[in-house]
């Protein structure tokens, strides 16, 4: 009996407490039949990577509005590489200016969703990409 369920870690790096987006997305993913590991506010890159590995997630979803993404995301990607876990897809959302998006995609963040993104787009993105990896 096979019963594969996509697992996603929804995490909030940085110190800001605006978790409306993260929670709406978490709920939408659950309603799309995924398992969402939700770890709450103020997550360090180390905590996020360690959690992603222990939970064996397919996707890490980062939500950040503090403006510290250019500092935290590269650190996180580096840790993922060190832990040989770059097969985990990383996506992000929040207030991230266009020029930063280009930079972040270069270091391996697969997709960045800006405010106002339809949750169905995020679900589709995950389904497409997780299938490819498997």
């Amino acid at each position: 009996m096979k019963n594969s369920i996509i697992r996603v870690l929804v995490a909030k790096p940085g110190l800001d407490g605006h978790d409306r987006g993260a929670k709406v997305v978490a709920r939408a993913l659950r309603d799309a039949g995924m398992e969402v590991i939700y770890t709450g506010l103020r997550q360090t890159p180390e905590q996020i990577v360690e959690t992603a590995i222990q939970e064996d997630v397919n996707v890490i979803g980062l939500s950040i509005l503090s403006g510290a993404h250019m500092h935290l995301f590269p650190k996180l990607m580096k840790l993922l590489k060190e832990r040989e876990a770059i097969d985990i897809i990383v996506m992000a959302g929040g207030i991230i200016p266009g020029e930063d998006i280009v930079e972040l995609k270069k270091i391996g963040i697969k997709e960045i969703f800006t405010p106002g993104t339809d949750t169905n787009r995020i679900i589709e993105f995950i389904k497409e990409n997780v299938k490819v990896v498997r």
Binding site: G33, Y38, T39, T51
Partner: peptide, 13 residues
């Protein structure tokens, strides 16, 4: 849906 939100880790950060 078979989906879930697993939130116990919040307390184990």
């Amino acid at each position: 849906t078979g989906g879930a939100i697993l939130g116990d880790r919040i307390r184990m950060q």
